[in-house]
Structures are given as structure tokens and as C-alpha cells.
């Protein structure tokens, strides 16, 4: 067997295995997406892969938007149950949960970044007693499981009547995200060239102005990386939301509502699939448009707890 032949065979094997793995990794999401657009009776009756078959017995449209309207708008709908009776059910109104998720996620992403950036600058460019001790604590807290904080914080929140407020969950996510944020931003900010800062101080700028006018813009790549990280983490979080928002249904976020739907509508795949896709649409968009920053952030990061 010649070199060229062997190269071709190895190319086929490499691409073949890769294609197979990509299929395995993509099919679950693809099946969800297809099902979410299918007519509800068909979702329940036939596999999603039959949606593309050329011989269909059913006369209902192949793909519809009804499932999305039902889960988003909370529109009431009727369906025929297994016993043949017409059943009316109320919708899920995920649009409210979507807005709640945004109200939770945006500040819970920006606040820790702002606080961590200030702290990272302080650690990198200022001298004060306890600097090393405090930063060692930050490094130590990197892997502390957030479960350790749930009971004490819940007690404080009950005392302060903060349970079920946006402020409560922003602060919780800020606390749990801060060690990694501070650590990552410190690594970046401490490596900025020293002469840039010195020339700023020469011109009489204070630390505060230097930070706002110079350091923040220069650190944009690192800030963006962590922002995506924290955004995905907060948007996709269930545990923190359950613990600190669980007491008030009107502020429930998407993951909470979807988890409830799994419990109450475990068989209604047309709604579950649409609901799941609604929870995924924003993170997927962010993810694909900013993938480069995200990867850079992952590469810069170390072990997160």
C-alpha cells in the first residue's frame, strides 16, 4: 500500500468518525427543535424523524407554531385526552419567565464584573496591608461549593425580607461568581504594561479616573470573556433560583418554569420541546455570536468551583 493510499484511508477514517460523533452530538438538539414545531398529536404518536417522510397519512400541517404560542402566551388550549374526552388546559406563559430571566441575568452578569474589575485593579496596582492575604482567600474560595452558603444566606434573607427579590439573587450570583471573576480579571489587568499606567499618573490622573478611562477599555476582551461565562452560568442556573426565588412564583425564571413543566406535563412533548427551546434560544445566540471571546475566556480560566 502506497503512502498516498494510506493517507486517503486515514482521511476517510478520521472524517468518518468525526462525522459520526458530530451526528451523535447534534441529533438530540435537532430532534428537540423539529418536535417543537410539529403538530401536537403527531409528536405524541410518531417519532420526530417521521416528520420528513414523504408518505404521511395525516392531513394536519407538517410544521406549526402553535406549541410556541401556547407555552409563550399562556393561551388556553384544548386537546383530546387518552380516554377521548376534550380537556382544557391553561398555558404556561413562559414569556413572563423569559423577562424574569433577563431581569435576573443582566445585572447578575454586570454587577460581579464591575466589582471584580475594581478589586482586580486594586490587587494589581495598589499597595495596602493584607493584599496578599486577601488575594489568597480569593484563590481559596475558587472551588468552594456554593451549597455551603445556601443555609446561612437563606437565613439572612429571611431576616432581611429579601427572599424572592431580584436583589437577593443578583447578590447571590455576584457572591458565587466573584472569586473566578476577580481571579481572571486580576490575571489580565496585572499583565497590562506598567508604562501605560505610569504615564497616566504623570498626567495627574487619579486611580479612579485611570481605572475608568484606561483600564476598563483596555480590559474589554477579558471582561467580555467573563461576561459570556457568567451570563451562561446565571441564565442556565436552577439551584440558586430555586433557593432564593422559589418562594415567589411571579418572579420565577425560565429554568424553574421548565423544571415545573417537566413535573406537570411530563408527557406533553409538543410543549416541553417548545419550552426547552425557548430557554435555549438566547444563550445559543450569545454563544454563537461571541464564541471567540468565550473560548478565550475558557483558555484563560482555571478551575472553578
Amino acid at each position: 500500500m502506497g503512502m498516498k493510499q494510506r493517507k486517503t484511508i486515514s482521511d476517510i477514517v478520521v472524517n468518518g468518525v468525526l462525522l459520526f460523533l458530530c451526528l451523535v452530538w447534534t441529533l438530540p438538539t435537532f430532534g428537540l427543535l423539529v418536535s417543537s414545531f410539529r403538530y401536537k398529536d403527531e409528536v405524541r404518536r410518531t417519532g420526530w424523524w417521521t416528520a420528513f417522510s414523504t408518505q404521511r397519512e395525516s392531513e394536519t400541517p407538517r410544521f406549526v407554531l402553535d406549541n410556541y404560542l401556547e407555552v409563550l402566551m399562556g393561551r388556553d388550549f384544548t386537546y383530546t385526552s387518552a380516554t377521548g374526552a376534550e380537556v382544557r388546559a391553561s398555558g404556561d406563559d413562559l414569556s413572563q419567565a423569559f423577562l424574569n430571566s433577563i431581569a435576573v441575568t443582566v445585572p447578575a452578569t454586570v454587577i460581579p464584573i464591575l466589582i471584580a474589575a475594581f478589586a482586580a485593579y486594586g490587587f494589581a496596582w495598589m499597595d495596602f496591608p493584607g493584599r496578599k492575604v486577601f488575594f489568597t482567600i480569593v484563590v481559596g474560595l475558587l472551588v468552594v461549593p456554593l451549597q455551603i452558603a445556601l443555609i446561612p444566606i437563606l437565613r439572612d434573607y429571611t431576616l432581611l425580607q429579601l427572599n424572592g427579590t431580584f436583589l437577593a439573587i443578583w447578590l447571590a450570583h455576584t457572591g458565587f461568581g466573584l472569586p473566578l471573576a476577580t481571579y481572571l480579571l486580576y490575571n489580565y489587568i496585572s499583565n497590562l504594561p506598567r508604562d501605560i499606567l505610569e504615564s497616566a499618573f504623570m498626567d495627574g490622573a487619579s486611580h479612579f479616573t485611570t481605572f475608568i478611562r484606561l483600564i476598563l477599555p483596555l480590559s474589554m476582551p477579558a471582561l467580555a470573556s467573563f461576561a459570556i461565562f457568567q451570563f451562561l452560568w446565571v441564565w442556565n442556573d436552577l439551584l440558586v433560583a430555586l433557593v432564593f426565588l422559589g418562594a415567589r412564583p411571579d418572579v420565577a425564571v425560565l429554568t424553574q418554569r421548565l423544571q415545573e413543566m417537566v413535573g406537570s406535563r411530563g408527557q406533553d412533548w409538543h410543549l416541553l420541546t417548545a419550552g426547552a427551546f425557548i430557554t435555549m434560544i438566547l444563550p445559543l445566540t450569545v454563544f454563537f455570536s461571541l464564541q471567540r471571546y468565550f473560548v478565550r475566556g475558557l483558555l484563560a480560566g482555571s478551575v472553578k468551583g
Binding site: 468525526l18 460523533l21 458530530c22 452530538w25 447534534t26 438530540p28 438538539t29 430532534g31 428537540l32 418536535s35 451562561l232 441564565w235 442556565n236 442556573d237 436552577l238 429554568t255 421548565l258 423544571q259 417537566v262 411530563g266 412533548w269 416541553l272 420541546t273 419550552g275 426547552a276 430557554t279 435555549m280 444563550p283 445559543l284 450569545v286 454563544f287 454563537f288 464564541q291
Partner: peptide
């Protein structure tokens, strides 16, 4: 290929739960 394999990183554990409940149904 890397993008496709990487994609699930953007999906929540709950969302992934629904996806896989459907597969295991």
C-alpha cells in the same frame, strides 16, 4: 465540527434534561 460539539455548553442542565428525557422516552 468543533462548533457542533461545543454547542451543548450553552444549554442548561434543565434544558438538556428535557432533550434527553425525550431520547430516553
Amino acid at each position: 465540527a468543533k462548533s457542533l460539539i461545543f454547542l451543548p455548553m450553552a444549554i442548561s442542565f434543565v434544558g438538556a434534561g428535557v432533550i434527553w428525557r425525550f431520547i430516553y422516552f
